[in-house]
Amino acid sequence: MKNARIRWHILVFLAPAVLVYTAIMIIPLFNTLRLSLYTEVGQERVFAGLENFRTLFGDPRWSASFWNALANNFWFFIIHMLVQNPIGILLAAILSHPSLRFATLYRTAIFVPTILSFVIVGFAWKLILSPIWGIAPEMMDAVGLGDFYQPWLGLEETSLTTLALISVWQFVGIPMMLIYAALLTIPDEILEAGECDGVTGLAAFWKIKLPLILPSIGIISILTFVGNFNAFDLIYAAQGALAGPNFSTDILGTFMYRTFFGFQLQLGDPHMGSAIASAMFAIILIGVCIYLFGIQTRMRRYQF
């Protein structure tokens, strides 16, 4: 008898999250997927099946834009993985060193850019690097490197990397905080046991701490992946929707925005835009699945 009673409190506690999440995430998501299967003929919306995807991948112009955006997106992600996360881990390792003074100050200072708006970060860095008013050319002149100054944000070869590094500067606080928290949970007994066996200093980091924080690094990688493939704001704030120069900073987010909402004389095409959004969703889904099933399940966990 008692077991059959409906446990209302579960429903009550779940309801707000389920309702809000459904209304603002799940319904729009499926609506976008549905929209990508339609097209507009005259003023009518008609079902077109996979026609939009055929255009996106089959038409030489559309597919060139798409692959360009995807390749740029991968480069953006690789820079984050190679620069942001190792630096984050390094900073966390240094910060968690017991003899470091002013650790709280450094931690706060490094984390502050994370809470700044993309618009502020984009604008501030544009000014810093500006060839006309920026402090970068003068600072480099002052140390005798003036000849190496380039208008990095304006050159096809360097603009994407520059933007990726700006984004790294902004977000390096997040892996640092997560790893820092993970490092703090490692019990001192383990490290002390290691010391008795002669594992100290750098060796202790490589052999004891790093294996213990691997799950956190995995989480950070997947957060970076999702964040980078959904990125849009910084590029839009710094380079505008045309993602110049010559589309060298065009990532999937800006490509989708331009297509969906239109740009200047080009009218918006919500159906092609949804097709791109669906492709982005698929890419992220595949990436997350590879991580969840391929990597996370094989990761060893330690119980203290």
Binding site: K126, L129, P131, I132, W133, P137, Q150, P151, G154
Partner: peptide
Amino acid sequence: LGRGHQAQTYPDSQNL
């Protein structure tokens, strides 16, 4: 055009 015109924006030009 000025040095670094590749990264010079419209408001930059107006101000210059």
